[in-house]
């Protein structure tokens, strides 16, 4: 079973005349309106470096917001949203996301283009707890904790 089912990149640019928009969905299998995706992936009142959780159909969505710097205008408010199975333990997933974004920032790789282009690798890396390689730089997804709850089937003898 995959931890991350779908990932979404959204943004509200700092430039004059911008509006919130969904930039990328992978895999593009969400059967909901763009308005719904925006409201789930960039919730009202969202500010940088925060997590937001919500339900999306029969799944959960975990959103992490961050800033993308701009030279000639305000910074953008961006987000990465992960659509998850209900059994995913969100507390254990959060550190992976913050470490990944911090790493992208430290390597000057925190741009919409790079994140969008590498969404499949990011999902694969998280799901397999493996190395994510972006522009010849490697991020090792380290997580000793379980990302999913064990089966809730009753144990023991009846």
């Amino acid at each position: 079973m995959s931890t991350v089912l779908i990932s979404i990149v959204s943004g509200l640019e700092g430039r004059v005349g911008s509006n919130p928009k969904v930039l990328s969905i992978f895999p593009n299998t969400l059967d909901v309106s763009e308005e719904t995706i925006i409201s789930k992936s960039l919730p009202h009142g969202a500010t940088p470096d925060k997590f937001y959780e919500d339900n999306l159909g029969s799944n959960k969505i975990l959103v992490y917001t961050f800033e993308i710097p701009n030279e000639d205008s305000r910074n953008d408010l961006a987000s990465i949203g992960l659509v998850l199975d209900k059994d995913v333990i969100i507390e254990n997933l959060r550190p992976i996301i913050t470490q990944l974004i911090e790493w992208l920032k430290s390597e000057n790789l925190l741009t919409y283009e790079i994140i969008q282009d590498h969404l499949p690798k990011i999902i694969e890396g998280i799901n397999n707890k493996s190395i994510i390689v972006i522009k010849n730089q490697a991020f090792n997804v380290r997580c000793d904790a379980e990302l999913e709850e064990k089966s809730r089937k009753a144990r023991g003898m009846f």
Binding site: E13, T47, P48, L77
Partner: peptide, 8 residues
């Protein structure tokens, strides 16, 4: 300095 306000 702020990023744009998302909604309110």
């Amino acid at each position: 300095e702020h990023v744009p306000t998302m909604g309110k």
